Amino acid sequence: MTDLYDAAVALVVAGLSIGFTMLWLRHLSRLHRRRMDQLLALREALHDDLLGTLVLHQRTLAQLGLISMDWRGNWYGSPVFTRMGPPIPAIVHGAAATDARGQRRFDDRVLCQSFQFDDISLDFRIGLKGLRGERHLFAVQAAEVLFAMLQGALAARQLALVAAVSQRARVGVFLQHDMRNLAQWVQLVAEDFAAAQDDQTLMVRARRLRSNAALAANKAERMAKALLNPTWQPSLSAPLTSQEDPESALMLDLDEHIRQAGELHQVEIELEGGAWLQWDEQALATVLDNVLGNVSTLSRERMLPARCRVRVIEEGQDIVVHFETPQLPLEIPLDKLFEPWATSGSVNKGLGMYQARKQALQSGGNLCAEPLGQGVRITLRMPCKNS
């Protein structure tokens, strides 16, 4: 009977022990999960300020068993070293030590991880609490998750940097043509003044400069803002603001814009028809700059008068503008007119007409070309509200 009683007591004690152990593990797992949620919530903050976030949330890390952490290395050219918590012992992960009474005990573990990303080179060490069993496993898991989050944050930072540099290069490429147009205008003005032989001619050139100066200044200001604004991007894939909200587009005097562009590029405009329209002003300016700028350049190279016949036709809700230069042959085949960096022999046309067509398309219009005599007819179609 005694043996049976002892066995029963042993079974009860064992059952209670297992029950308490299960409850304790359940408590630990829930506590660990809450703390891991707090750790995962730092993901966005790590992307914004990686090193500062670690220092700011040192308590959260310590609650996970990461009692100390340090890192050293290079952060965008600056040497860095930071320590949080007690110094980390220089021991190998998994090593054991002996206390003063000669009893073996687990010492603080050390986990190490190195990160290399272009201008970033960091060596991290994390010291764990000297705990046995499940507490140690939970702490190791938290450290590995933190390392993965650091890896992701540094990779995201590097990708964002590469994208930003690429975007700035893209902006520069697209602004090169606008800067060339402005430089050509300066060259034309300088040649005009240099060729003036008398005061009367000089005054005529001065009046022309005064009429064009405001337009040129506006173009220069727009380019300067684009270069200084990191969020600006050329209109290639995203619709323009005026298309997202048509009411935000300005009512434009098409005749006035065509004549101003002709004066700026010193092209004699033979204008037929006219209209007011509601369309994207930047897209219109880009088309006029490139079309009439090419007329001016080709005419000067061939020692011909710079002339362009412009016909404005209203077709329902569309405004159609024909730019006609039948006596001015193109430098490149017509099918390459809108090709970026199109070449023919030693001629390279850059991005001008490509950029003009893209902006017209993104504003809901179109830009196309067809042969006309020895030259070309370029047609701009603008679906828009008009009055």
Rank of each mutant, 00 (worst) to 15 (best):
A14H: 09
A8D: 13
L51V: 13
Q362K: 15
L128A: 01
C368N: 08
V12A: 15
P86N: 02
V204E: 09
Q151C: 11
A153H: 01
Y354D: 05
G375Y: 06
E270M: 09
A97S: 12
E270A: 10
A14C: 04
L28E: 00
P87M: 02
W24N: 05
G77M: 01
V162Y: 09
R180K: 00
P305W: 13
A360F: 03
M69E: 03
L380C: 14
T201P: 00
R207Y: 01
L175Y: 01
S242N: 01
F138E: 10
G73R: 14
G127S: 07
C308R: 04
F115R: 00
Q38V: 08
D48F: 06
L25S: 08
M149W: 04
D99I: 12
W276Q: 03
T325A: 10
R43M: 11
A160L: 03
N212H: 05
L328C: 15
M69S: 08
M179S: 12
E339G: 00
L215R: 13
L11P: 05
R59K: 08
T2N: 04
N212P: 04
R26I: 01
A190C: 04
Y354R: 03
R302G: 02
L128T: 02
S237N: 06
M22Q: 08
L337Q: 00
F20M: 09
M1C: 00
G375I: 05
V287L: 11
Q243M: 04
V291A: 09
R309N: 09
Q374R: 12
L292K: 10
A306S: 15
H257A: 15
